[in-house]
């Protein structure tokens, strides 16, 4: 069952409690892949990207209480991006990564990109929106019948005709319209809840 927007909004406030598994599981599920993909795009190898995610989440766990006390704290994901960026720069300047590129390496290129915060911020925002969709999709998919999800996926994502999918799934055209619209409503509501949590 999906929790209310109020409950979801308070999840960030619960993060100082390291024993709050529900709150931390959600943060790891949404923001872990986000940081990982950004790290991979900047050229980090999978193992290094995993390490970076761990370092970022560890820093969040150590600092979130202090951050929450700041009156000017802004959005959680903006703060997380700041931590990810600083951690990545720190990561890439370690001897292990510097050695990757004599005379202008991948690591050096990644560092140069990270030094341009506007570009990184835009990438992070795009990734955030994609991850929001993935997170909401997983939730909705788990909560509906396989045919209902398939009706939505085939007609919305695969752009197939309602009539064709209805025949294939043995459903009426009306049922397909209902299924895809109900799922879309739930996806939209979940993404909005996630946004509200981040304010």
């Amino acid at each position: 069952m999906t929790s209310s927007p109020e409950t979801r909004a308070s999840l960030i406030l619960r993060l100082p409690d390291a024993a709050d598994i529900v709150a931390w599981d959600e943060v790891v599920a949404v923001y872990g892949p986000l940081v990982y993909r950004l790290a991979r795009r900047k050229g980090l190898q999978p193992n290094d990207a995993d390490d970076l995610v761990q370092e970022v989440l560890t820093t969040v766990s150590h600092s979130v209480e202090q951050w929450l006390r700041r009156p000017d704290r802004g959005r959680f994901r903006a703060w997380l991006l700041c931590i990810a960026r600083n951690t990545a720069i720190n990561f890439l300047t370690r001897p292990k990564h510097r050695a990757l590129s004599p005379g202008g390496s991948d690591a050096a290129n990644a560092l140069a990109e990270l030094a341009a915060p506007d570009g990184v911020s835009q990438e992070f925002e795009v990734e955030y929106r994609r991850e929001s969709f993935r997170w909401a999709s997983r939730r909705v998919r788990e909560s509906v019948a396989p045919n209902t999800w398939e009706a939505f996926w085939q007609t919305t994502m695969e752009d197939r005709s309602i009539a064709e999918v209805a025949r294939e799934l043995g459903m009426s055209a009306g049922s397909i319209y209902i299924a895809r619209s109900r799922i879309m409503t739930r996806l939209r509501d979940l993404v909005k809840q996630l946004e509200a949590r981040d304010e």
Binding site: R129, R130, S137, Y177, S181, R182
Partner: peptide, 25 residues
């Protein structure tokens, strides 16, 4: 009603944004 139910479920940006997110997913 087939057109209207999609409009009431979400606006055009949501439907299109959903497709963009799925392409990456």
């Amino acid at each position: 009603c087939q057109l209207r139910i999609a409009e009431l479920a979400a606006d055009e940006c949501d439907w299109m944004g959903c497709q963009a997110g799925a392409a990456v997913g």
